[in-house]
């Protein structure tokens, strides 16, 4: 038995189980990240590849560094990049809050229904994924445009006299992002709410707590991990979102995804585009690291 325990603790099986996710991270995150990092230190040129070398091998183990931080310096000389980052964070944060406000009641509702009805409701949340993301965003163009369904309905009902400029506005961007990422908020929330021990709620009610107090003191704190997970799943992809602002946002919406696109496709400056992407990654990783620290500390306190 002793030997068995040692086998499971140090053996090949355990290493494999731990190793697979690490290998995944190395191949699909770390390697692309390092390639991007290298390009971000080079300079653009007309040629193939369209950037200069960062290292010059002098034979053996010696090499010379040719790269520079000039791309990163450039990002701070022009306020375009900082405002684009700030605007992306703002749009992502507001969309996340909207997803939470809409998604929480839905998840709570689904978790309180039993049997067939719950399966049906869950299916309805997941069903939109059967259609391509791009097509669903395109469908909003048809709904929002000035001769579209929504304006047509409002005009017909006599609520408005002339079509509202719904499409190509910040409103359309918030709507598109909230709509697209709502399931990513609902599903983790549902998972954490569904596991909740119903007797805790009954106990709270027995002790005289009103429904609102039960929700604020029992349900909400217990679902906190779901709230955090859902918010991360919405916030992180929303920051780098390109499709929604491109299709629904029109021209005045400044987001880092579009700035990245124009650096890459219009200026053909891969090195600067890489630097923009690296900074974006840092902006995304820092709160995650902070949150994990915070999580570990609070678990340690308990």
């Amino acid at each position: 038995m002793n030997r068995n325990a040692r086998f499971t603790r140090n053996g090949a099986g355990r290493r494999l189980v731990v190793g697979v996710p690490y290998l995944w991270m190395v191949v699909f995150f770390l390697l692309p990240f390092l390639i991007l990092l290298r390009i971000s230190f080079s300079e653009s040129r007309i040629g193939l590849p369209p950037y200069t070398e960062v290292f010059e091998w002098l034979g053996g183990l010696s090499f010379r560094v040719l790269g520079s931080f000039s791309n990163y310096q450039f990002l701070f000389t022009d306020d375009l990049y900082l405002s684009a980052y700030a605007n992306s964070v703002k749009i992502a944060a507001i969309s996340t809050a909207l997803c939470l406000l809409i998604g929480y009641p839905m998840a709570l509702g689904i978790s309180r229904v039993r049997g067939q009805a719950r399966t049906l409701l869950l299916m309805l949340v997941i069903l939109p994924f059967w259609t391509s993301f791009l097509i669903r965003v395109y469908a909003w163009i048809g709904l929002l445009k000035s001769e579209g369904l929504i304006n047509g309905l409002l005009l017909w009902a006599g609520i408005i006299d002339s079509p509202l400029a719904l499409l190509y506005s910040p409103f359309a961007v918030y709507l598109g992002i909230t709509y697209s990422y709502l399931p990513f908020m609902i599903l983790p929330l549902y998972a954490s709410l569904e596991r909740m021990d119903g007797s805790l709620l009954e106990a709270a009610a027995d002790l005289g707590a009103r429904p609102m107090a039960v929700f604020l003191n029992v349900t909400l704190p217990l679902s906190w991990p779901g709230v955090i997970a859902g918010s991360m799943l919405v916030f992180i992809p929303a920051i780098g979102e390109f499709v929604v602002p491109e299709l629904l946002g029109g021209t005045s919406t400044l987001m880092i995804g579009k700035v990245l696109w124009s650096e890459f496709f219009l200026n053909r400056d891969w090195p600067l585009a890489s630097a923009v992407a690296i900074i974006m990654l840092i902006i995304l990783v820092l709160p995650l690291v902070w949150w994990q620290r915070h999580q570990q500390q609070s678990e340690g306190d308990k």
Partner: peptide, 10 residues
């Protein structure tokens, strides 16, 4: 850069 300024006012 100028085009972005014209488009987004930034």
């Amino acid at each position: 850069r100028e085009w972005t300024r014209i488009k987004t006012d930034h």
